[in-house]
Design a protein around this nucleic acid. Structure first.
Lengths: 347, 347
DNA sequence: GCAATGCTGGACTCAAAATGTCCCACATGC
DNA sequence: GCATGTGGGACATTTTGAGTCCAGCATTGC
């Protein structure tokens, strides 16, 4: 059964979307006994016209009965609902999760792939693939796309393709270099992405973490300045999310700062900033790269991260509230949902 | 699994059509090893442009590899085909049958509903439903629709509906009265159909079978003449199909004629004519109703009949070659397919 | 019995997607 | 090197989809 769904997903990706839509309409009608089009549209968050097209269809299938008094479900419709019950969760569980998380954080879109990126490399690859799809859709002509480092972003870079090379697009690193391995450096990822899509790119050959003095002098450099200006006006940002402590270690932040982070409850790290549980920035660093105020003005901010262990960190960054799209995996999504649950209970 | 497919067939028949289309493209590409767009379009009976839209999609899904030399299926595509194999028949078996029969008899459309009308009243009802759908789609403004008698047509009549009453349409009986029960009389059916759709109707109060003398004198009658003229210019004809001997008995044809029919190999009866295995008319009767030459000029001829026992008769009438649409059931369709098989083997 | 409300379905407009048609540059095999 | 067949770009046109209103009708509450 699962296998049939997988096949169908490949052959017509929006099958489940349509199916879910029709199912929800039918269910809502069933629960409402008798209901009008406008009321139904409102309760399902659809425009009247779209709903109408669907109800016309369901009527033609004789799953719905429509007359001047309103709509009600037919016997055949009820039977269909019953038969569908056992499939619902496997089929739409993820869509349900996506919608839940999307609404809770006020995002534009949430994409969840099956599995746990912590455990399976396959899931990590799928995560990358999903990220590519989202990014490709967001890209337009002559865009500047700022990219962070990390293994997940590297995964995205390795799978990015473009049918038609758009020379007008620029990939730039969001921040300077970290102490990470070369493969996961923002610079490396940026160059891979550009090469794979036939786009242009610029690198930022500067350490990410700087003292005030170094910062001022670097920003005097014309060629640094120039690229930084490009970075700060990026229309799209795509970034990973990490655990605060893990990242601090990887960045070789000194012990005093680590203690400070701990004290302030830093949970997550993303594009160089540290966030606490409530999504507040607990640690700011002077950077030549993308600053928090740039992010706030970026048109499309895409977060991509997966794995059960990252759930908490992802929730923290989402709460920060300036992301538009979240790409994650099932394990992380379930963690996030649990956090939402807990919060809603105490509230 | 079976059940999931049934659900989908109800909830998204439109998407399954798309799915089949994509499957067939992929299969054809696989079988052809490497093939070009135009060649492929020709072998699949599609226009180049729609095929292109589909191949672009399949390429994006990485199921198809396209380069300057042509297209070939990818590894992922092959795997998909394999995984799909076991589902294909349950999902598209009927579509396949439809297409096969359609092509063989050169019809415009074939519709097959599941089941056997001989055995299950439910299938008979479904047959009627499908007939309604076809008829509704064919009807235009100010059409004249000629209708024959029979239980299947009665079933159609009882389920016909119209969203908007079109006063301009006329339903007329194709032929005069038979010795059948009132419910199955063409006149009765015509009146039901007209009432249910808000259309007009005329009846033909004349016995179907006439001697030459009676014919001539009846045709002198102005009011008979008038309605006969309307009948003969019908744009749509919808008719049932019966077994020749059963119909002859029901019509109380005299023994001599029955023997003649037998001798000539009459197999099927439809709109008052008897057909042999090859679709040739073996018995002509003088009629005030629709004549064979009128049928030949009718724009839309719809045949509707089901049940395993009718398979042979349906095939015979189809071979006659002036039908455009056939609505039948699975059992009859399988019979028809078997007949086609046999014939193709001897050929 | 009547007014008010809520319902569907038709109509219209506008935008977007699908489709039919050509043509060009290019690979490939003869 | 030529003929054939390939994908892909371009563009006009048709079809479809969607937003918005409103008329006509049934039901309900008074």
């Amino acid at each position: 059964m699962q296998s049939l769904i997988e096949i169908q997903q490949q052959l017509l990706p929006d099958l489940l979307v349509v199916m879910r839509k029709r199912y929800l309409i039918l269910r809502q009608v069933m629960l409402s006994d008798m209901i009008g089009r406008r009321t139904l549209a409102a309760s399902l968050d659809m425009t009247e016209r779209v709903l109408r097209a669907e109800t016309d269809f369901l009527k033609a299938q004789e799953l719905l009965h429509i007359d001047a008094a309103g709509m009600r479900i037919t016997e055949a419709g009820k039977r269909l609902m019953e038969k569908m019950e056992p499939f619902y969760k496997t089929m739409f569980g993820l869509s349900e999760l996506e919608e839940r998380i999307r609404k809770h954080f006020g995002l534009k879109q949430v994409v969840i792939v099956t599995g746990d990126a912590d455990e399976s490399p396959h899931t990590k690859r799928e995560l990358g693939r999903a990220g590519c799809a989202v990014l490709s859709k967001a890209m337009q002509k002559d865009d500047v796309i700022a990219v962070t480092g990390g293994s997940t972003l590297a995964q995205v870079a390795n799978q990015l393709t473009s049918h038609t090379p758009l020379k007008g697009n620029w990939f730039v690193p969001a921040r300077g270099g970290l102490g990470e391995s070369l493969d996961y450096q923002a610079n490396t990822i940026v160059s891979t992405m550009a090469k794979r899509t036939g786009a242009q790119y610029r690198m930022l050959h500067v350490p990410d973490h700087l003292g005030e003095e170094a910062y001022t002098s670097l920003m005097q450099e014309p060629n640094v300045r120039e690229i930084v200006e490009v970075i700060r006006k990026a229309r799209i940002v795509i970034h990973g999310i990490g655990d605060a402590m893990v990242m601090a270690r990887r960045r070789r932040v000194d012990a005093a700062v680590v203690d400070a982070l701990k004290a302030e409850g830093a949970l997550a790290e993303s594009f160089g900033y540290y966030f606490d549980q409530g999504g507040a920035v607990v640690h700011k660093m002077l950077t030549v790269g993308l600053r928090i105020e740039d992010i706030m003005e970026t048109e499309v901010v895409i977060a991509i991260a997966g794995g059960r262990s990252k759930g908490e960190a992802i929730a923290a960054v989402m709460r920060f509230g300036h992301d538009d799209v979240l790409v994650t995996d099932e394990a992380a999504a379930l963690e996030i949902a649990a956090i939402i649950d807990k919060e809603e209970q105490t509230a």
